[in-house]
Structure formats: C-alpha cells, structure tokens
C-alpha cells in the first residue's frame, strides 16, 4: 500500500479531510500501481441549465502524460478547466463533485483559486504571450507570486527557457516583444512561462491545434521531456498525437467519461464500441 503513503506524505490536511479523501485502492488498480496525482469523483458541470459533464470519475497519474480525447463538445476541455478552476471565470458555470490534487479538494471553499493556479499551470489552444518582452513573459508568475528576488529571476527565466527549448532561439533578444515570435515559439514561450513557477501539474488545451507540423513535433518532444517532472494533462483532437505523447488516455463522449486506460491498450484494444468507432474514425 505504498499509494496510501503517497497520499499522506508531507501533507498537512486536517484529519476530517483525510477521512473524506478518496479511497485510493481502486485508483491504484486503474493506474496499474502508479502514484495518483489528481483524483476526480462525481464531477458534474452545468453551463446554466445545460449539463456539460455527467458523473465523471478519473484518476490521473503523477509524472505521466494523460490525454483527453473525444469529439467536439464532449466536455474534455470543460473537465480540464475544472482542475485549475478556470471555469470560475465563466458566468453561469457550476461545478459539482470532488477533484483532489494530492488529496486536497480544489473546490474546497477554503482554497484560494489563485494559489491553486500557481501550482497548476495551463497552456491554451492559441498562444497567448502577454504584451511584454520575452523575459517579462517568463518572469510574470515569479513577479506576481513574489517567488524570487532580483538576482534569481534572471537565472530562473534562463532555466525555464532552456527547459522549454527556446533559449537558443531567443537568448540574444530577451527584451523583444513576446508577440514578435512565431506561433510555435510563442507556444514554447507560454510553456516556459508556465514552468517558471515550478508547478506540479501542467494542463494543455489543444496546445498544437494552431501550429504547423514542424512546430507541433517540437512541442510534442518538449511534452515528452517534461513528463519526468510534471503531471501533464493534454486535451487533443489528434488521435496520432494522443498515441505519440501520452501514456494514458481518457475518452469522453457527450459529457460522459466512456473509457480510460493505458494509451497503447486503448488504441489497440478498446473496451467500448464507441471508443472503437471514434478511434477508427467512424464518427467525431
């Protein structure tokens, strides 16, 4: 039961919360014994009267890439945005259920979404560098959270850009505007911005859908490198991309989680007929 240990290691949760924490036995089975980072149970999401997610339960492993796939409007992006509570910014959106990161519910009243988002980075569909220099874009999170003093900022920015594989291309023009970069470079800049604050989880919402194949390949390489340090959840429309970058895949359909499992198993031997239809391109 090393999983139990993972749950409890170094946490400072009050005991009543501990009891409420999700029983990890099932999760451990589902993940094949790998440690669980995010555990979602009974997640229901409503946009006004319309229900977007129905009773979603999913475990996401640490130090692994989990791909969320499914046809448009199936709720995969909605689920992703539940994890860092970005749905709070959408008027009329209600999230019910529990989503725990290391056993702590993100929807807990006492939890400040601002602090949560410092731990859970996010990369969007369209590259969105801020109207600032390349350096200031990466330093943004450090500055607003007061994470580093002046001398450290430069080092962290450099390290983040190196990890995002962008340093060689921009080291001589760190003070040029972030929007002067190409689309693929901008997306890597945004990833560098996200990892600069050293998050535990990185959420990616179709990060390559606005990029050409070469830039896409670079981002996929980068995701694979980052996997060793972060828990990564990626929403993608490309089945090939899900197969290339992820270790685990979850298939959403009409707001329900149809099937989740190891990527290689799911693509070769799906359990549900809907998954099979989608993967083989019969719908979606």
């Amino acid at each position: 039961m090393n999983l139990r240990n993972t749950y409890n290691s170094g946490n400072s949760m009050p005991s009543d919360q501990l009891e409420a924490a999700i029983q990890p036995a099932a999760a451990s089975e589902a993940l094949g014994g790998a440690p669980v980072k995010i555990a979602a149970r009974d997640v229901n999401v409503f946009y006004g009267e319309k229900q977007a997610l129905f009773d979603v339960a999913l475990d996401v492993g640490a130090q692994a890439v989990t791909a969320l796939i499914g046809p448009s409007g199936c709720g995969k992006s909605t689920f992703l945005r539940c994890i860092n509570r970005m749905n709070d910014t959408i008027p009329g959106c209600r999230v019910l259920g529990r989503i725990e990161i290391d056993g702590a519910d993100v929807n807990d009243r006492g939890l400040d979404p601002v602090l949560l988002r410092a731990r859970v980075g996010m990369v969007f569909q369209k590259p969105n560098p801020f109207p600032k220099s390349i350096f200031e874009n990466v330093a943004y999170g450090l500055r607003i959270h007061g994470l580093a003093n002046k001398s450290e900022v430069g080092d962290i920015v450099e390290a983040s850009l190196k990890r995002a594989g962008l340093w060689a291309e921009v080291s001589d023009r760190l003070h040029a505007s972030g929007s002067s970069l190409s689309g693929g470079q901008q997306q890597r800049l945004v990833i560098a911005r996200a990892i600069a604050v050293n998050p535990e989880v990185i959420l990616m919402d179709e990060p390559c859908s606005a990029l050409d194949p070469i830039a896409t390949a670079r981002i996929e390489e980068l995701i694979d490198e980052l996997r060793t340090q972060y828990c990564i959840v990626i929403v993608t429309h490309s089945m090939a991309q899900a197969a290339r970058v992820s270790q685990r895949t979850a298939f959403f359909h009409m707001g329900k989680l149809v099937e989740a499992g190891r990527t290689d198993e799911m693509f070769t031997n799906p359990r549900d007929s809907r998954t099979q239809d989608y993967i083989t391109g019969r719908f979606g």
Binding site: N84, M86, T89, V114, L115, L116, R117, A118, G121, M122, F124, K126, N128, F130, P131, K132, Y140, G141, I144, H145, V190, R193, A194, V197
Partner: peptide, 27 residues
C-alpha cells in the same frame, strides 16, 4: 483585448486586478 490574454494571466495565478494592471491595460 483577447480573452485568451486574460485567461493566460488568471491561469498563472494572477488575481483579477493583477491581470488588469499587468496584461489588459498594457494591451
């Protein structure tokens, strides 16, 4: 100002007024 900029800043853990001051107004 594109919503994606606001989302980006909020997702970094910035508060609403930090987002306005640092991202929306400069844009």
């Amino acid at each position: 100002v594109p919503q994606s900029l606001r989302d980006g800043s909020l997702a970094m853990g910035a508060t609403r007024s930090e987002t306005i001051k640092n991202v929306v107004l400069p844009a």
